[in-house]
Design a binder for these strands. Sequence first.
DNA 1: GTCTATAAAGCGATAGAC
DNA 2: GTCTATCGCTTTATAGAC
Lengths: 189, 189
Amino acid sequence: MSQSTGGTRERIQAVALELFTEQGYEATSLREVAERLGVTKAALYYHFKSKDEIVTSVVEDRLVRIDALVAWAETQPPSLATQRAVIERYADTMFTGEQPSVMRFFEQNQTALKSLSAGREIRERMFRLANVLAAGDESPGGQLRATLALFAVHTSWFAVRTPGITDSERRRVALEVADELLAAIAARS
Amino acid sequence: MSQSTGGTRERIQAVALELFTEQGYEATSLREVAERLGVTKAALYYHFKSKDEIVTSVVEDRLVRIDALVAWAETQPPSLATQRAVIERYADTMFTGEQPSVMRFFEQNQTALKSLSAGREIRERMFRLANVLAAGDESPGGQLRATLALFAVHTSWFAVRTPGITDSERRRVALEVADELLAAIAARS
DNA sequence: GTCTATAAAGCGATAGAC
DNA sequence: GTCTATCGCTTTATAGAC
């Protein structure tokens, strides 16, 4: 509070997240993180009390955003219009700021996140989001299509390998495919 | 050759794969694997020369199956009928024998597989399979829909939470959704 | 084919100087 | 706020007895 941290805390978060995503959380040691930053392990422990806490601090902001979306969605009537609005807002949070790198870390570290409280919380929110998108259609087809609509947004980041493609084009095509899936749910229930 | 292994090698593969899938490859020690089997670590090293090799040996069989499918697909004309046949055969390999647990391990250990040769090989085959399913449609929408068609088969294993659902019902709904995605590719190119 | 014992290295985390 | 030094522990992997 009295003195500036010089953004060291934020640099640790960024570098750690990058290495955790590339190599995996368990396979990345704090020595590697410290070396890439040009500091020692002990410096890391001044800013964070454990390896877990680096992840937790990064994920918290993401959690708040998803929470708000789930809360809003659950107050809306279960209509096709609501579902389209949900997936569109979800895509917005996925294509904004550092959020994409947080979710790429999440995709690449499923097992590690099982034993991290922040990971379990995000998983729970994703299931609730999928339930909202299924909109009362409890059939296997409804559940699968709702989940894939969510996956369309994530998958657009690595499955689309068109050279020179922009973020807004990725977003547009992801929503186009997601909308087809949501429409198929509505058409069948 | 001269003496029976008593199936110990196969038991090691099964237990290791199960723990690697539950907890992650890096987070699982060979001590844990040995303890669950009721043997010591040294016994594991008699059957496999390293931790990597346990994974490699398990993945090899899976690799051969995907290889055969990709080779067959690449000789077929790029038609909707071919794509539907490919995804159907893919689903067959996914719902047969121990193959599902191999692919669940694969899903849960993306980063660990980056540094394992067997993992890199499977990743390459999946991209070639997605290319076949896009059937010459190089557009972002085509690539995304082709990849999601493949994901529909995988996702049906955990996204569908209907109580008492059977494997053949999972397979049927996965193919139904995959077919919709493939039809959307054909309709737009 | 499985055991005991151990080597060699790396890990997360902490103490205390500056 | 970052350092050096180190603790205690676990890891993969090997040697050699049985």
